[in-house]
Design a protein around this nucleic acid. Structure first.
Lengths: 342, 342
DNA sequence: ATCTGAATTTGACGCGCGTAAATAATTAAT
DNA sequence: ATTAATTATTTACGCGCGTCAAATTCAGAT
């Protein structure tokens, strides 16, 4: 590394003995220049430590190398995990991932879309808030920017959707619970997104298929504080007495975590062993659910597959010019994770 | 909103009947133009929906309005929470927060610093990895970019540090534990950052001050999977038998969560009531620790204060031109959160 | 040595905006 | 109405790079 800083590409090109347009071409695609000149540029690169000015680059490129990642709630480790995986893959493919969280708020989500628009990203991976989303705003956004939706579906919006097969996963755990004890009742999550309703319906269908009467416990409470909802509503339900079943299937793990706390507080022993008053199961295989007491029986979502397939779909979309021939929906199956809670 | 899109500031200025330089001035500071012209611009803004091209703006400004936020591990809800608070405050102050997570990896952290450098941010709020940080790289970075460190201290680096007063908080909970039962032994976290060592030392000092013999339980394991470390090491320690005390103070809540799982698995009842074999306490007041079974007694870090003061310090720093007269360190006290686990 | 297609160089223009200096218009106070 | 101070406009240049057309050089094969 030499002493003085390089100011611009002009200067770097001069120092490496190559013309600026060729250097520019190199940075757009190192393979587009002759191997010998590529070597010379890379040698100079080591000595002078130069990087093109991103702002100038992005101003002049029709499309940037940015990829927007939008999640509804980053304080949920599920989204933190999935965002991490997506980031990694974008970087590996030579893109610049930019992460946003709507923090459960429609206004914030809309602002993010606005910001994103002016960033002119090559594409966007969007896990929308769901019910709280401004459908019109999201739709307009998707018209301008190549977007793949994931986790939470909004019918007809975006070029593709990647998520998990709630019908399969809920069906599977319902069947498991029925085989191993009392048929479960369903502890619903606040209907923040379509997954809430899909899971409820999947539960009802599975129960009816198996010849049992479904019981859905509706919860009061909204927003993304699922643990709190699970806890307060769990206490309410337990205190009220008369649960239709000793087995509770929760719409997601965070709800189950809150419910476990409520059961503990009420002195109800949870588990599938003898002496247990309650079985509790969740959905998602949240990063912390293996450390609950007792560890949570749940269905794991295929994080890697969802993240990976979302990204690949977006890359294909970008290469195809931003418009897909048809909107494709991909659902990944869940995997039963048997632990001690049910 | 009129039909056709505005291409640039020139066009927008023409349509609103104002000269471009004045419009430019407006966007830099709406109050820097006469109220009457401001009105005219804002009226036009409603009709035409124009936004300056960020890339062009950032290329020409000496300093951008970007603020980098770097955390070591975003899948930890503690950092997700604090990042959220910081983001909000930056936006309110008219800045563009850009969030990065090092995902516990030195290479990633270094790449982030590199990217950040070329983003020419007005300032950076950095919670470094700690021990895993490339000290030299961070130091060089801080020389070029106004940076406030938070959460994890690196002596002498950055223009300021904001964190929690481990000595106070650990001292307080040690004293509480001693007053209410057996003096605790200390379940150490993997020494990923200085907080690990500071907390251990604070524990030892507090115990000696109170006339007790400190016992530190060293853990094997590294990285940021604290729950896993707490769980596996907890099982190991319990199986080995001969714990020096029935009270365990964990270096942080995530470790305690893992330890709670281990105790549960081993059939040890945790809590401060009768019939309990173990008391477990944590540190941080992790968002989930009120939902553990039993709920975790811990020390809450003052998230808001740490986030708020970090941001304010950075803003002052930016206004002062990026260099502080002296490096100031601010530590916030923790608050004892008594729950059922100890 | 000659040819050919590909790679490179040269020169020039454009992107959208910040900013500075000089000039003109507006405001407020005398 | 006159003056001084503030605010706008005009004009012009610069930022760092993408990209295009034309001219040139290159590598490899004949």
């Amino acid at each position: 590394m030499d002493g003085h800083k390089i100011r611009n590409m002009e200067e770097f090109a001069a120092l490496s003995g190559i013309s600026r347009p060729t250097v520019s071409k190199y940075f757009n695609d190192p393979n587009s220049v002759r191997p010998s000149t590529r070597k010379r540029i890379e040698t100079a690169l080591e000595r002078y430590d130069y990087r093109p000015n991103i702002y100038a680059v992005n101003q002049n490129r029709r499309l940037t190398k940015n990829i927007g990642i939008v999640v509804p709630y980053l304080a949920d480790p599920f989204f933190a995990e999935i965002a991490r995986t997506i980031e990694r893959r974008c970087l590996d493919a030579g893109f610049w991932p930019i992460l946003f969280s709507a923090h459960g708020d429609q206004g914030v989500e809309n602002n993010i879309l606005d910001s994103l628009r002016s960033l002119r990203p090559a594409g966007v991976l969007l896990a929308p808030l769901g019910r709280a989303s401004d459908r019109k705003a999201v739709e307009l956004f998707c018209r301008d920017v190549p977007t793949v939706l994931f986790d939470s579906e909004i019918e007809g919006i975006g070029e593709a959707f990647v998520g998990s097969d709630n019908s399969q996963s809920i069906g599977m755990i319902v069947e498991y619970l029925c085989r191993t004890g009392e048929p479960p009742c369903f502890f619903e999550m606040p209907p923040v997104n379509p997954n809430a309703n899909k899971r409820r319906r999947a539960y009802v269908q599975a129960m009816e298929r198996l010849g049992h009467t479904p019981h859905v416990i509706h919860v009061n409470g909204s927003g993304w504080n699922f643990e709190e909802v699970g806890h307060s509503e769990g206490k309410r339900v337990i205190e009220a007495g008369g649960l239709p079943s000793d087995t509770l299937l929760c719409s997601n793990d965070r709800l189950a975590i809150g419910l476990l706390a409520a059961a503990y507080e009420k002195g109800l022993r949870v588990g599938h062993g003898p002496g247990c008053a309650l079985r509790i199961a969740g959905h998602d295989d949240h990063p912390f659910s293996r450390y609950t007491c007792p560890p949570l029986t749940t269905v794991s979502q295929n994080y890697d597959a969802i993240a990976g397939h979302s990204v690949e779909t977006l890359f294909r979309l970008i290469e195809a010019g931003g418009k897909a021939k048809a909107r494709e929906t991909t659902l990944f199956e869940g995997r039963l994770v048997m632990r001690l809670s049910a």
